[in-house]
Amino acid sequence: MSNELKLSKKSQEFLENLRVYLFSSGKRWDEIEGIVNELEIHLSEAEKNGKPIEKVIGKSPKEYMEMISNEMIIDYRTWFKYICLIIFGALFINILPDLLEGNLSYSVLEIVGYIVITITFIASVFTGFKYISKSNQSIKIQGLILFTIALLPMLLFSGLIFLNRSINTPIIYLGNTGSIIIAIIAALFIIGMSLWAKTWLLIIVVTMLTLPNYLLNLTSLEYETQLILNSIITFGGIGIYLWIMFKLEKNK
């Protein structure tokens, strides 16, 4: 925005919370921006005239957010699209390294577990965000909630690996042709998604996750050295990319 409005910290916080709350309630992005901008103008004019924020949003920000949310329609189609993108995007990112090592084979438990964990993760992210934006918790508790949400899929995936070892379910084995078809679909999906979202992020992440590992395997370095180098290049590379993007965004 070219014309930044002067706003008190309390008002800014409220607007941020409102945005997150409406977003995690599944409202349409442009409608959210519309109402947030409108309230931003209102709050800044009210502050200029010496009115406290309570005069605008009432005593309970939570109730006010709900009031607004109730008047906005839920955009199920976009949300379905996003959720599909997250599930398949993460799935293909997981599959690619396996593909480079050879043909694909997964147990039924792994496949079902993967889908269940992803859905659980998405649901927990939305519930968590909604809760944080609505309730006035301290930064510490907010951090703790986000940390738990981030930890949840890791714990569940560890559980799944353990379970997969102790319970035998039928294994779906994809031969050469099958693996190649999946690889092509995955590549097309990632390229398509990058074009749609106009970002290099996915391509960079996928390259960083697979290419160093693949190239290092070709060298005669020791296995431990390979592992260490691999993680440094992967996370360093993604980190540098995000840092550059952040700088570019800031200079806009």
Binding site: I35, E38, L39, H42, A46, K51, E54, K55, V56, I57, G58, Y64, M67, I68, N70, E71, M72, I73
Partner: peptide
């Protein structure tokens, strides 16, 4: 009344 109450009303009237 709190001034902000007009916005949910405006949203509905627009709908």
């Amino acid at each position: 009344f709190s001034e902000g109450t007009i916005y949910p009303l405006l949203l509905r009237m627009q709908k």
